[in-house]
Design a protein around this nucleic acid. Structure first.
Length: 357
DNA sequence: GAATCCCGCCAGCGT
DNA sequence: ACGCTGGCGGGATTC
């Protein structure tokens, strides 16, 4: 769903506009699939690199989203890594920071426990009551993210509610070496992002110097976070139902069941496009100015005004003359639609399209 | 130019 | 050995 938002399809070799687009795509963008047409024209679909999407904050949100319904759960590292489609290393970052809230604990190799939001509330309480002196938490190494995070939280709870990261870094240990300090600030960014992801702190600015800083929000923020998550879940469910209704193919499509010429393809796709646009118009009337561009017989591309999103519709394989297409092995199930009847094609195209909007 | 922080190398440690 | 952990800082990206 959301994941598809930054997909871009390019037909290379002939189209200057596409070439320009390609230049815009950072080399970190992931190639989802490529199709080579008989005339050597290529269709390549990219997932645009998006730094924000990869941020610890986002990842942390996703991580917690997986766990929100549980009061207790064993987290399997391999599993969660797979589920979130992310480097193992990043999960450690999140886990280490959440450990400072006691909500996650290492059980054994590959396994951590999650003990529910109530634990976070309790831990915050403990931080507030200084006597709960669990800064010696575990026998963790001095420089661990967990210890640093605990220290950071304590600054908020026990000193003042707004901190610049640099300020906090200086306060947490008396670092003189500028490089070491810089490193500590880097780590505090990591920590701040995770704490922010669950609403415990928020980004702000110092009134005096206007310097960027972080402010403690605490339980209220956490509560809000939980609330939002729940609400979002509801919305998603509603959206799903809505899409299910939309996906019904219209009767007129009966007559494009067996296209046997490219003209028929075109009319078939034309109808698809009509449907798609109609659909989009229904959904968001004003802002949907669509430009339609036909590439070659085998594909139709719908380009949204801002060029950011180009949705490409691939014809069903069954209707394609032998050897007309060669498709490189797919890495992603999202491109694996090769439905065997046109009704479902229309349905799945619309579904796909809606996902992409 | 400063702020932000992704990314992945590689060391340390447990098995 | 070997694989799991996670410290660390280069340098890309965003503000």
């Amino acid at each position: 769903m959301e994941e598809d938002q930054n997909l871009v399809s390019l037909s290379l070799l002939n189209d200057e506009q596409d070439q320009k687009l390609l230049e815009k795509i950072s080399n970190k963008s992931k190639k989802i699939f490529k199709i080579v047409f008989p005339n050597n024209k290529q269709l390549i679909k990219y997932k645009i690199y998006n730094r924000k999407e990869k941020s610890l904050e986002e990842l942390s949100k996703k991580f917690v989203r997986c766990l929100i319904d549980y009061d207790e759960k064993i987290i399997c590292l391999d599993q969660i890594t797979e589920e979130l489609g992310v480097e193992r290393r990043r999960i450690y970052d999140i886990i280490n920071i959440l450990e400072s809230l006691q909500v996650v604990k290492r059980k054994c190799k590959n396994k951590y426990s999650w003990s529910g939001f109530k634990t976070i509330y309790q831990t915050i309480e403990q931080y507030a009551n200084k006597q709960a002196n669990f800064d010696m938490i575990s026998h963790k190494r001095e420089k661990s993210l967990e210890v640093l995070s605990a220290g950071f939280i304590k600054l908020f709870m026990q000193q003042k509610s707004i901190w610049t990261l640099e300020e906090a870094a200086k306060y947490l240990g008396n670092e003189v070496d500028q490089n070491k300090l810089k490193t500590k600030v880097r780590r505090l960014y990591d920590i701040a992002n995770v704490l922010k992801s669950i609403g415990l702190i928020k980004k702000t600015h110092l009134v005096s110097s206007k310097k960027p800083a972080f402010q403690w929000v605490g339980k209220e923020g956490l509560k809000q976070f939980q609330h939002n998550l729940k609400q979002q879940e509801q919305k998603n469910k509603a959206q799903e139902t809505k899409e299910n209704v939309i996906i019904q193919p219209t009767p007129q499509n009966q007559n494009v069941n067996k296209p046997d010429s490219f003209n028929t393809y075109n009319s078939y796709f034309g109808k698809c496009i009509d449907l798609l646009i109609q659909q989009q118009l229904n959904d968001r009337k004003q802002q949907t100015e669509q430009k339609i561009k036909e590439q070659n017989q085998n594909q139709v591309t719908v380009i949204t005004p801002k060029l950011r999103k180009t949705y490409t519709i691939i014809p069903p394989r069954v209707t394609t003359p032998k050897k007309a297409l060669s498709i490189t092995p797919k890495k992603n199930q999202s491109n694996s639609h090769t439905p065997n009847n046109n009704k479902t094609v229309v349905g799945s195209l619309i579904g796909k399209f809606n996902q992409n909007i």
